[in-house]
Design a protein around this nucleic acid. Structure first.
Length: 293
DNA sequence: ATCCAGGATGTAT
DNA sequence: ATACATCATGGA
């Protein structure tokens, strides 16, 4: 077992592990204690988190300006890429036009970073997100890993990787419904089949953001909103602004002029207003609004 | 009991 | 292109 620590106090804009992992942008990490924002509140201390990535267990916790990790190999390059530690957050904030709501969100969760998740787990989690609360999306991904994922031993415990597309493609709709996926079960299975059979893969996606979003809707259960989530949280299109219920409410209340009716036009209006890192602003605002009152 | 949750799909217009 | 009903499930 290897262990190490990354000095995140030196990163421009800082770092906050809890908000990064529990803000509903990634569903791959769990706290060792099994608790969440919902039952432990904000800024809940230096809890350990664990995840399985590319067959290897990674454990991590933040103690002040140190991001501590343990893994079977050197996890620092993996964490730097995964948690976007090389993003200049100060530059991101500076490039975003001043705005009361966005500024409040940035101030409250200073240090939260976007993630760069692998394609399939990201795709599945946001297919599952349709009409579903964040806490239950976590539960659905946990159930998928426990039922179909490869077990991985690490430091005396058994963890479960997220299943490969081939395994999900081979599952029956009934098996997936048993995991609580509801009507999303066939969506997840059919999208896994598209990937497993090579009929639609990340390599087929155009490099340009809006074209990639359009192509992603070729997966089953993926509309413009879910496609935007994959663009932002997996493909690195930082200008993508997923228009979920929270953002639509925020637009109606704070930026009514940006409501152009259709998804593409409204999304573009928000992007024009908040710039090339509009996706960062979106994720902060989503997290901020969800934890008010 | 009724409503709602990080929406998408099929169908009718 | 746009409007509408429908789709499971669990918590408030």
């Amino acid at each position: 077992m290897e262990r190490g620590a990354i000095d995140v106090a030196e990163l421009p804009g800082g770092f906050d592990l809890q908000s990064t992992l529990e803000s509903g942008q990634t569903y791959r990490w769990r706290r060792d204690d099994g608790r969440t924002y919902a039952d432990s509140g904000l800024h809940g201390g230096s809890a350990w988190y664990h995840a399985v990535d590319d067959g290897e267990v990674v454990r991590a916790r933040q103690v002040d300006g140190r991001l501590e990790w343990t893994s079977s190999t050197d996890a620092e390059p993996r964490l730097r890429r995964w948690l976007r530690l090389d993003d200049d957050l100060d530059a991101v904030v500076a490039a975003t036009p001043a705005d009361p709501l966005v500024d409040a969100a940035y101030a409250t969760y200073r240090g939260m970073r976007l993630v760069r998740d692998p394609f399939f787990p990201c795709l599945v989690s946001f297919i599952c997100s349709a009409q579903m609360r964040v806490e239950r999306i976590f539960a659905m991904q946990t159930a998928l890993a426990r039922r179909f994922g490869e077990p991985v031993d690490f430091d005396g415990h058994v963890y479960h990787a997220f299943p490969r597309p081939e395994r999900v493609a081979a599952a029956s709709e009934a098996e997936l419904r048993d995991l609580g996926l509801g009507y999303r079960a066939p969506y997840v299975r059919d999208s896994a089949r598209l990937l497993a059979e090579g009929r639609l893969t990340p390599d087929d996606l155009p490099a340009e953001y809006e074209a990639a979003r359009e192509a992603l809707t070729g997966f089953v259960g993926v509309g413009e909103k879910v496609a935007d989530c994959v663009c932002l949280f997996s493909l690195g299109h930082l200008e993508a602004v997923p228009l979920d219920t929270w953002l639509r409410r925020a637009i109606a209340e704070h930026y009514p002029a940006c409501d152009r009716g259709g998804y593409a036009d409204t999304s573009r209006a928000i992007r024009d207003r908040f710039g090339p890192f509009a996706g960062y602003a979106q994720t902060y605002v989503f997290h901020y609004l969800r934890h008010l009152g």
